[in-house]
Design a binder for these strands. Structure first.
Lengths: 207, 207
DNA sequence: TGTACATCAGTGAACGCGCGTTCACTGATGTAC
DNA sequence: TGTACATCAGTGAACGCGCGTTCACTGATGTAC
């Protein structure tokens, strides 16, 4: 039916972003060509440039979309976890477990973290994208720091602990866990790291 | 003096690898051109191909060198740490502290982990390099697992804990810590993650 | 309901540039007799 | 000590290909009167 019918532009744009994200996570931004994206989507090169003014605009849209999605995911999980449990520690622990299960249930190895991909190819991006990336990481720190602070009030840790580092630890573990998972081709590595983080949190506040 | 004098080939080769590693960690393998390397080193393109039969051979040499260097570094640190301390737990803890200090003393942000860089650009490498990368990660797992096993004998943990995951946790934390350090442009993020891992080890075996 | 115009979502052809790779050649150094 | 040959560490020119980007154009859909 849609042979003559015109496409909706936002659909095409979404498809470009979809293929681009997969490709970037597999081989990096520099090695992902516009050519391969348009082949996958089924438009011409000029069609691509109707949607993105240049390759930099694609990068920006890609990262923005990724950060937004990630934020929604975390919001969702920890909101649901806290609905089940109004104690901040146990809510957080439930959230971490839910996250680990979600990752364990993925059919394949996690495709990768765009923030890591951008970080390892910084020279290819303009300042705007680099700043977005930095702010993304800092917002994760803020998110987890706020969980930890609320927990600390009710469960003061017996020994001094670096709370910003402990907040970052989650991001580091997920990020590094994804890399290890991909490198050894074993999808379970990642959820097991999340569970270890959960174990650490328990030891700090309950130990 | 050396205007007419001929260079030693192994020196040139080493220089190529040096520049290549820095470039790859900054922008990825695909975006690192032979052209820029030869400009940096001061030879012609054909000179490059005298040393490496193609770009794939450069990738292989780069990763091999990186893994070898990393192994020597870990061997050194933990051997020295265990000389100071024959208890396996305390030797390991001292080694982790030495490593954190070494990282904290770096003048700049850690330049990056080649294994992560390769992992995030897998499609650009041949099977041989991908396998080397995988084996590198597995050898780290083996190394830390053996530390943990020796510690477990003398300090049996009170609760069950996933020892392979705990071995991987070090790699994940370093890898992720490097990424975060680079992303937020704060070199202290990385050593603080190493210290948190040390904290975790203490809690598991002494808590 | 019909028509004029605007917007959307592209097409098709051309561009210059830089990339990795090849090939024939070279000049300095090392080695054998 | 002199000479012949081999090896080392490159040079210089050329190659074809794919890349990102531009530009003039188009045909379907939406909107105003």
């Amino acid at each position: 039916m849609s042979t003559t019918r015109k496409r909706k532009g936002s659909e095409t744009r979404k498809q470009i972003l979809e293929f681009a994200e997969a490709a970037v996570l597999e081989k990096g931004f520099g090695a992902t060509s516009i050519e391969e994206l348009i082949t996958a989507v089924g438009i011409t090169k000029s069609g691509f440039f109707y949607h993105f003014k240049d390759k930099g605009a694609l990068a920006k849209a890609l990262l923005q979309r990724y950060l937004d999605r990630e934020e929604i995911l975390f919001d969702d999980i920890f909101r649901r976890a806290e609905e089940l449990n109004d104690d901040p520690l146990h809510g957080f622990l439930v959230g971490l477990k839910m996250l680990a299960e979600l990752l364990a249930d993925l059919p394949e190895t996690h495709p990768g973290c765009l923030v890591a991909s951008v970080t390892y190819q910084e020279q290819l991006f303009n300042q705007e994208v680099i700043d977005m990336n930095r702010n993304g990481v800092l917002s994760w720190r803020k998110r987890f720091r706020s969980h930890l602070d609320r927990i600390s009030e009710r469960y003061p840790p017996k020994t001094d602990i670096d709370m910003d580092a402990m907040a970052d630890m989650f991001s580091a573990l997920v990020d590094g866990g994804i890399t290890l998972s991909k490198a050894v081709k074993d999808k379970d590595v990642l959820p097991r790291q999340v569970m270890l983080y959960r174990d650490f949190v328990k030891r700090v506040f309950l130990g």
